[in-house]
């Protein structure tokens, strides 16, 4: 838990631009929502090719994958209910290549649509929050005793050394 907190603080305090962090959160969320497959690999490729903050992406990916254990059933049921439109089914059945993305699987389709819907707002909101943090909170937070204690802890020092 401490390592996780230190890791977040390190990223927030780093030289990475707020946009890099914001997109990392948005893409990490999308990758986390999706069951592992070709779409996940494409997102991973995008993250690697663009200068998105990798540490943040991996962190959010892991967190959101965990969330899907809790909300996966509800998302699946919702998708099954709303994805019975003949036009959509016809579109998904058009080519076998399209089916490589497994969008005809309820959970993949639901997660993909939700991820696309959340991607821009989450990326933008995250960027704004990072900017706000750096402008207003960071300097004050550095002075907090608990943060100084945290930074001085052996575990965090070890983590920073290894990192």
């Amino acid at each position: 838990m401490l390592t996780l907190l230190a890791r977040i603080l390190k990223v927030l305090n780093s030289e990475a631009s707020p946009w890099q962090i914001g997109w990392a959160i948005g893409l990490g969320l999308m990758a986390g929502l999706l069951p592992f497959g070709l779409l996940t690999l494409l997102i991973l490729l995008l993250v690697c090719l663009l200068t998105v903050n990798l540490a943040t992406f991996l962190l959010v990916w892991g967190l959101c994958s965990g969330l899907m254990f809790m909300f996966g059933d509800a998302l699946e049921a919702l998708t099954w209910q709303y994805a019975q439109s003949p036009a959509l089914l016809q579109l998904l059945a058009q080519s076998e290549t399209l089916q490589l993305f497994h969008l005809h699987h309820t959970l993949v389709l639901g997660a993909f649509v939700l991820g696309i819907l959340l991607l821009l707002p989450v990326a933008w909101l995250s960027t704004v929050l990072v900017k706000q943090y750096r402008g207003r909170v960071m300097s004050k937070l550095q002075q907090w005793k608990i943060v100084q204690m945290l930074k001085a802890s052996k575990l965090v020092q070890l983590y920073e050394k290894l990192n």
């Binding site: 069951p35 996966g72 059933d73 699946e76 049921a77 099954w80 994805a83 019975q84 003949p86 089914l89 016809q90 998904l92 059945a93 076998e96 089916q99 005809h104 699987h105 309820t106 959970l107 993949v108 389709l109």
Partner: peptide, 14 residues
């Protein structure tokens, strides 16, 4: 009971 990830009933399933 439902599966965790169902396949949608496509009109021409291979």
């Amino acid at each position: 009971l439902t599966l965790a990830n169902r396949i949608l009933p496509l009109p021409s399933q291979p």
